[in-house]
């Protein structure tokens, strides 16, 4: 549980963060979005005290962060950044084992932990353990960065554009992995990104910032449907908001369940998003799709009418 109460940060004359209050529940993934320079990174760094806040209070599990030794506080939190900050003179395995070593875990436990993390993040031990960071691709390096942040199994993860500068496919893979990870590990994650699709896909709580202040926060769907003002609306996608919303809903939630008789037609997985379904309809010039389950069995039907949510007719 992370709680910010009336927190501000001033650098000389400029106010980078202006009286923000935020409460991030355990197991919740919060995403901070906003235009460049609005104070997202500053907010993140105040939580692990890389930057000291000027005003207000920040609590971790009910305790003021100023009550902890800086190093103790940081070793309890994972930290991943866009540039990865991997130590170029250490191997991948040693980089990942950094925090456990700072915490003086026994070597065998560190080794086991590094191995399980590397496996989890798709970096086979025998191939990657002894590589140096400069031998990694951008996506591999960012995986190592995430593995390092997770190494000591912290309750809290702070991630500042951890998947920035990646191609869309690798990025999507990593987002998917983070979601899966989060479903299993239930960390409290604070995530900063410029990519609105990434934000919408990952967030349990979306926090929109502007000029150091919070404009609106809440579930992505709530913000999409009822943006507080024009700024939030345009940041969330302006005219594209309908498609963004469709990307958050699945075919399974909208389909019409079917009797036993399978119908001919284009087939789509129940886990696909409404956006994908719409795209398929446009592509195939179809007004109706057959929804299938994981076994490939037809379980329902999705019509264009249903997809666009013409609710009054249901």
């Amino acid at each position: 549980m992370i709680e910010l109460i009336g927190v501000s940060k001033r650098f000389g004359q400029t106010t980078a963060v202006d009286d923000i209050s935020l409460r991030m529940a355990p197991g919740e993934l919060s995403v901070l979005v906003g235009t460049s320079g609005c104070g997202k990174s500053t907010t993140l760094r105040m939580i692990n005290r890389l930057i000291e806040h000027s005003d207000g209070e920040i609590h971790i599990d009910g305790q003021q962060i100023r009550g902890f030794r800086e190093e103790t506080l940081r070793r309890r939190m994972g930290y991943a950044i866009q540039s990865t900050g991997l130590f170029p003179h250490w191997t991948v395995a040693r980089n990942i084992g950094l925090v456990p070593r700072l915490l003086k875990w026994p070597a065998s436990r560190i080794h086991a932990r590094v191995e399980s993390l590397m496996t989890m993040l798709g970096l086979p031990m025998d191939e990657f353990a002894d590589k140096m960071p400069r031998q990694l691709s951008g996506g591999q390096a960012q995986r190592v960065g995430v593995a390092r942040a997770l190494a000591a199994d912290p309750d809290i993860l702070l991630m500042d554009e951890p998947f920035g500068a990646l191609d869309p496919i690798t990025r999507e893979t990593l987002q998917h992995e983070l979601r899966e990870l989060q479903a299993r590990l239930q960390k409290t994650i604070v995530f900063v990104t410029h990519d609105m699709d990434e934000a919408l896909r990952l967030a349990d709580r979306l926090v929109v910032m502007d000029q150091g202040r919070i404009r609106q926060q809440g579930h992505p769907l709530a913000l999409l449907r009822e943006p507080a003002d024009g700024f939030v609306a345009s940041l969330l996608g302006g005219e594209d908001r309908g498609l963004k919303e469709a990307a958050l809903l699945t075919v399974g939630e909208r389909m019409m369940p079917l009797g036993a008789k399978p119908l001919p037609g284009e087939r789509i997985s129940r886990h696909a998003t409404l956006r994908e379904a719409l795209s398929m309809m446009l592509w195939r010039h179809a007004e109706r799709l057959v929804v299938i389950d994981d076994q490939g069995m037809a379980i329902g039907e999705l019509s264009l009418r249903r997809l666009v949510g013409a609710r009054s007719h249901e």
Partner: peptide, 15 residues
């Protein structure tokens, strides 16, 4: 030294 390396080192809790 890459500032990211220093930031990560401090962020991870190195003294």
């Amino acid at each position: 030294i890459d500032p990211g390396v220093r930031e990560a080192a401090r962020g991870m809790g190195m003294t």
